[in-house]
Amino acid sequence: MKKLLILISAFFLSLTAFAQSNKITLVIHGGAGTITRANMTPEKEKAYRADLERAMKTGYEILRKGGTSMDAVEATIRVMEDSPLFNAGKGAVFTHEGKNEMDAAFMDGKTLAAGSIAGVTTIKNPISAARTVMEKSEHVMLVGKGAEEFAKLKGLEIVDPSYFYTEPRWKGLQKALQEEKMQLDHSDTLKKSGFVKPDISGSSAIDKLIFDEGKKYGTVGCVALDQYGNLAAGTSTGGMTNKRWGRVGDAPIIGAGTYANNKTCAVSATGHGEYFIRSVVAYDISALMEYKGLSVQKAADEVVMKKLVKIGGEGGVIALDKNGNFAMPFNSAGMYRGFIKSDGSWEVKIYKD
Rank of each mutant, 00 (worst) to 15 (best):
K3R: 14
I8V: 14
F11K: 11
L13G: 14
Q20R: 11
I24N: 06
I28N: 14
G31Y: 03
R37W: 03
A50F: 10
R54S: 13
T58A: 13
R64K: 15
K65I: 05
G66W: 07
D71E: 15
V73I: 08
V73F: 06
R78L: 09
E81P: 02
S83P: 02
L85Y: 04
F86S: 04
N87T: 02
G89S: 04
G91V: 04
F94K: 10
E97Y: 09
K99Q: 15
A105M: 07
D108Y: 00
G109Q: 04
K110A: 14
T111K: 05
A113R: 06
A113T: 02
G115W: 02
I117Y: 00
T122A: 13
K124C: 08
S128M: 09
E135R: 08
V140H: 10
M141H: 06
A147F: 00
E149S: 13
F150R: 01
A151D: 09
G155E: 09
L156A: 11
V159R: 10
V159F: 09
F164S: 05
Y165G: 10
T166P: 02
P168H: 11
R169Q: 12
R169I: 03
W170Y: 15
K171C: 01
K171F: 00
G172E: 03
L173E: 03
L177H: 00
Q178V: 00
L184M: 14
H186G: 03
D188C: 01
T189L: 15
L190G: 15
G194L: 05
S203R: 08
S204V: 05
I206M: 12
F211N: 12
D212S: 14
K215Y: 04
Y217D: 12
Y217C: 07
T219M: 01
C222W: 06
A224N: 06
Q227W: 02
Y228V: 02
A233I: 01
A233D: 05
T235Y: 03
T235W: 01
T235R: 04
S236E: 06
S236Q: 06
G239W: 03
N242Y: 06
T258G: 03
N261H: 11
N261I: 03
N261V: 04
T264I: 01
E274D: 14
E274S: 05
Y275E: 12
Y275R: 06
R278E: 08
E290T: 01
E290Y: 04
G293H: 03
K298N: 15
D301T: 11
D301S: 14
V303W: 00
V304L: 13
K306E: 15
L308I: 10
G313H: 07
G313P: 03
E314W: 05
G316L: 07
V317D: 11
D321I: 06
N325V: 06
S332E: 10
M335T: 09
I340R: 09
I340M: 15
S342V: 03
S345P: 01
S345N: 12
S345Q: 12
W346P: 00
W346M: 10
W346G: 02
V348I: 15
D353S: 08
D353W: 00
